[in-house]
Design a protein around this nucleic acid. Sequence first.
DNA 1: AACCTCATCAACCGCCGTATG
DNA 2: GCATACGGCGGTTGATGAGGT
Length: 377
Amino acid sequence: MGRAPCCDKANVKKGPWSPEEDSKLKDYIEKNGTGGNWIALPQKVGLRRCGKSCRLRWLNYLRPNIKHGDFSEEEDRVICSLYATIGSRWSIIAAQLPGRTDNDIKNYWNTKLKKKLLAFAAAASSSSTTAAFNAAAAASSAFHHRSSAANKPLPPSMYSSTSSSSHMTSLYNNYNYTPNPNNPKQPLMVDDNHQQQPLLSATATSSCLETGVSQQQYYQPLIMFGGTGSDLQQTSCSSNNSENNGGGISCGNKQADMGIMSYHNFNNNSSIRSNIIPAGFDEINDSNVFLSHQFDDHHSTIINSSTDDDAPPAPALMADFYLDVVKQQQQQLSMNMNDLSLINIGGGNQQVINSKITSQEKDHQRMMMYYFNTDYC
DNA sequence: AACCTCATCAACCGCCGTATG
DNA sequence: GCATACGGCGGTTGATGAGGT
C-alpha cells in the first residue's frame, strides 16, 4: 500500500503565496509557533495550503533574518569550498551561511556561481594541449607529492570547533563511512613523470563501508564537464544507452555543466570508462577530446581506447581551476596542500545516480567525495 | 509590435530517514 | 517487525520578466 498523501491535493491551493497568506502564516507562527506539526498547521492558520508548502514558505521567506540575493565574495568562497568538499548538500552549506537558505544557495549555484566557475576554468585553459597537459601534470604532481604520514596532522573539524580528530569521524558518521586501516591508497591520475596512468582500483568492501555493498569500487579524482550533446549529458537524460553505464554529471538545459569527483562506475560488465569532457567546452570535437580508456575487470589493463566523446580529464583545464578550488578547500579546512592526496570537486551527478544505481551505491558515491586522505582511515 | 530565447527563482515533487503506534 | 505519518532534503519545474532579433 502506498503512502497516504499528506493533504487533500484537490483542495489545496498551489502556486505563489499572496501577501495575505504570508501575513496569516507569519502572524500565527510568531504567536503560536509551529506546534511541531506542519501538516496540521494550515488548518489552524486557516490556509488552504499543504503543510509542506507552509513549512517551505516559512523557512525560505517568512522566518526572521532571511537574506536574499547579493552574495558576497566570502559567501561565494564558502559555497565553492563546501561544494568542492561535500557536493550538493545544500542544507549543510546553508548552515554555514547565516541567513541563507538551502534553496537560495542551490538556485544561486545553479544559475550563477557555477557559470562563474566555468568561465574561470575556460579562461584558465590553454590553447596548447601539450602545455596544458604539462601544467596539469605539474598540478597533479603537486597534489600527490605527499608529506610523510607520520608527521601529518589531522585536519580540524569542518563543522565544529571540537578537536581535530573529530573531523573525519564526523564525516564518517554523517555519511556512512567507516575508517579502514587497510584501505588502499588512492590512485594517481598522473605519475611523477607526468605520464597518465590507468585508473587504478580500490577494493572497498563492506568491512570498510557500512553501506554493505561488497562489489569493487573504482574511483579516481577527476574533473568532469559535460556539454551539450556530450555523452555525459546523454547519460543524464537517458537510461537505455548501454554505453553510458557509469556515473556522469547532471547537465542543465542546453548548458555545459561540470563536476569534479571521484569517479567510479557500477557498470554491469565491470569495465570502466572515464567519461570526461574537457571543461569549458559546450561541444565535443576533435580539438577538445582526449583519449578515452576502457579497462578490464581488474581495472588494470586498457582494453579499448578511443577518441570518442568519452575522454579522460582535459589537463588543459585542470591545473589552475583545480588548484584554485583546492586552495579554497585548504583554507576552509586549514589543511596543508600536501595533506590532500585526493580531492573531489563538484559532484553534480545526482541525476545519474538516481536513475542508474541503488541508494546504497549512491551512498558510496557520496562517501567517495569525502575521501580526503587514506592516511586518516 | 511580435516573437523567441534565456535567466531567474519560488514552489513543487518525490524520496529518504526517523518516529510512532 | 510492520505500516504509517511526518520532516527534511535535493532535483526539477514552470511562471515570469528581461533582452535580443
